[in-house]
């Protein structure tokens, strides 16, 4: 017995070893590309962040000075605060709207209208954000469609240059994010709802529950996973927004819409303070992780 098993075990062992070797070979190109253009720059960025360097000349070790500046400079802190305000528009609005729209579309018979709705809602998600920024700047202009609409309904007194006004610029930019991300949320939620057991819906309806009750007791719990995914994706989008701001306000008026992405670009390239910009980049990455990891944990806890 033992003699016959041993060779087979050895064969299995060598097959596994061969599998391991081949596996690493297969994974190698991806890993090399990833290490070369994600991990390596991440580490050099970390290295730069401890230096004062203008990107060309000699550099000087400054320890954690750059990090101290990130956390003490009111302008830089302001840009972090703005990024968190954007979460309301990039995350809360699209996820909430997506939930409602998905339930609405699901309540309809499948057909042209429902599939056309999905396509239309998804459109903003696929066009270049930079182009969306250009279109929306024009919407928000003094002579743009938003003000035109307001005067048409008798609210002309509210008309203003939305992107040039200190109070409205940040929400206005945020709404562009809502416009872009609502479609993604809706479509993802739709599939999620499709996987919820229909008998659950029938059960609450038989209990005489209305639309709202059904939404809270069946739909939302059934979509926990999708919600976690979308909250993660949209928070990353909010904290690392760049394209939209760059093509609409460039951080203005004043610093009302300044976000970390624009600050990093400006500090690193216009001001040539590579160390400070790198430190801000590292801080931004840690902020994203700090926001995203707890969501994963929450999603798992509520799964149980």
């Amino acid at each position: 017995m033992t003699t016959s098993i041993a060779p087979r075990r050895a064969a299995a062992h060598s097959a596994a070893r061969r599998g391991t070797l081949v596996g690493w070979l297969f994974a190698a190109p991806a890993l090399i590309a990833y290490c070369a253009f994600v991990i390596y720059p991440l580490l050099t960025g970390l290295q730069y962040s401890f230096y004062r360097w203008n990107g060309v000349g000699p550099s000087e070790w400054v320890g954690i000075n750059n990090y101290v500046r990130v956390f003490t400079d009111p302008d830089l802190l302001g840009s972090i605060r703005n990024a968190f305000v954007l979460i309301a528009f990039f995350t809360i609005v699209p996820v909430a709207a997506g939930l409602v729209l998905a339930t609405l579309i699901r309540s309809m018979r499948p057909g042209f209208f429902s599939s056309a709705s999905q396509t239309i809602l998804f459109l903003p998600q696929i066009i270049p954000l930079a182009a969306a920024g250009i279109g929306w700047s024009w919407m928000y202009a003094q002579t743009g469609a938003v003000n035109q609409l307001l005067s048409a309904v008798g609210l002309g007194s509210l008309a203003r240059p939305w992107l040039g006004d200190f109070q409205t610029a940040l929400p206005a930019v945020g709404l562009i994010g809502s416009w872009v991300l609502t479609g993604l949320c809706t479509v993802l939620f739709l599939t999620g709802i499709g996987k919820i057991d229909p008998s659950l819906y029938e059960a609450v309806r038989l209990d005489g529950a209305n639309w709202a009750r059904e939404f809270v007791t069946v739909t939302i719990p059934g979509l926990r996973q999708e919600i976690a995914v979308l909250v993660t994706i949209t928070i990353i989008a909010a904290l690392s927004s760049f394209d939209i701001i760059y093509t609409t306000t460039l951080g203005g008026p004043g610093r009302a819409t300044l976000v970390p992405g624009i600050s990093i670009y400006r500090i690193g390239f216009t001001q040539s303070e590579v160390g400070l910009a790198s430190a801000f980049g590292i801080v931004l990455m840690i902020l994203v992780l700090a926001c995203v990891l707890p969501i994963q944990r929450l999603a798992r806890v509520s799964d149980r």
Binding site: I39, Q47, F50, Y51, W53, G57, P58, S59, E60
Partner: peptide, 16 residues
Amino acid sequence: ATASVLALAGCAPGSS
């Protein structure tokens, strides 16, 4: 990662 950063920190960026 931390170890490799410490290794990198030995050499400063930029031309002297």
